[in-house]
């Protein structure tokens, strides 16, 4: 495999949550709690997990949009956090983000050309003529008619807006893009178009993606490797083919079982559905966070958090029972 482009080392991001009521107590929400992994050049690393598992916080912390509580992220061997203002500006050219909500992530008062071209202005790239050409080129590349450059975001459909967000992320020719639930808010037929577009762009520009989503089917389709998160921790990581063939961690199993069926013939009389809710990340269960919902849990799971074990080459899982 190629060199790691991004190395995430024991990354932690905690939030202080003020409790309601008279007493001024503060709880600690451990959104990302000691996460380590590499992202290799040219790969699509899928990050999957349910709401509150910390996957979006992870994406934002990796990009230095959040300051980490502890840990380190290296980009091409250099820390993304220890940077002077000028270096930080250079870094943001290489690392970009596509957001979930194409409605709230675009400034409604700016014309589309301005939205897409703002980063070119900030970085003073090219003459105004060159910028204008670049914007037209970007619009074409993501499937938008450049004639619409003077329109406002609200004049576009959800899918078109997501294309605007993609064009904006690509404006500075980044190497690494975090796609945070980039297709989750879209209708299925539009979702398919955007997935194809993201794959086309990845091939054409040799991009590396960190693709965050709650939908296992989407992650399974687009990713080359998959990382599964539960309550702030990585529970399993493997190449896509390996994970599909053999999901080791009980939570990964639960996700695969809960994944919607694709034909009515797959209806089963007796289903093996995992019970219980996702607990709050404030005061998560002791030991392995999944143990209250886990049918395989043993005494040890309640007391100690399991370490990552390599269960097959390149396939890691954090579970006492495997």
């Amino acid at each position: 495999m190629s060199n790691p482009l991004v190395e995430v080392k024991d990354l932690k991001k905690y939030f202080h949550i003020k409790n309601e009521g008279a007493s001024e107590t503060v709880s600690l929400l451990k959104a990302v709690d000691g996460v380590s992994f590499d992202v290799f050049e040219g790969e699509i690393l899928g990050i999957v997990g349910e709401s509150g598992c910390g996957k979006s916080t992870l994406g934002k912390t990796v990009l230095n949009l959040y300051e980490p509580t502890a840990g380190e992220v290296l980009y091409r061997g250099e820390s993304v956090y220890e940077r002077h203002a000028q270096e930080l500006k250079e870094q943001t050219k290489k690392m970009q983000m596509i957001f979930q909500d194409p409605y709230s992530s675009l400034n409604p008062r700016k014309k589309v050309a301005k939205v897409i071209g703002q980063s070119l202005d900030i970085h003073s790239i090219g003459t105004s003529q060159e910028r204008s050409e670049r914007i037209e080129h970007l619009m074409q590349e993501v499937g938008l008619n450049p004639l619409f450059r003077g329109r406002y975001p609200h004049q576009f459909s959800g899918g078109q807006r997501q294309r605007i967000g993609i064009a904006r992320a690509l404006a500075l020719q980044p190497e690494f893009v975090v796609c945070d639930e980039a297709v989750s808010a879209l209708d299925v037929s539009v979702q398919a178009q955007i997935l194809n577009l993201l794959l086309d762009l990845q091939e054409k520009h040799n991009l590396t993606y960190m693709f965050i989503a709650h939908d296992l089917a989407v992650v399974e389709f687009i990713s080359t490797r998959i990382l599964v998160m539960y309550l702030g921790r990585v529970v399993e990581i493997a190449r896509k083919e390996d994970l599909v063939a053999r999901h080791v961690h009980p939570y990964t199993k639960a996700l695969f079982i809960a994944s919607p069926i694709t034909s009515p013939e797959q209806r089963k009389g007796e289903k093996h559905i995992f019970q219980g809710d996702v607990p709050s990340p404030i005061n998560p269960p002791s030991g392995c966070h999944f143990h209250p919902r886990c049918p395989y849990a043993i005494e040890r799971c309640k007391k100690e958090y399991p370490p990552m074990k390599e269960v097959a080459p390149g396939h890691y899982a954090a579970c006492w029972v495997v």
Binding site: S157, V188, S189, A192, Q193, N196, L199, A217, E220, T262
Partner: peptide, 26 residues
């Protein structure tokens, strides 16, 4: 047909590189 083909979980995409998306918008 397009709706079914838009689903990444459709078994036909086990090895596929792209989805058969419906073009255009509503």
């Amino acid at each position: 047909l397009g709706l079914l083909n838009s689903l990444p979980s459709n078994p036909k995409y086990k090895q596929a590189k792209r989805l058969e998306a419906i073009t255009g918008t509503v």
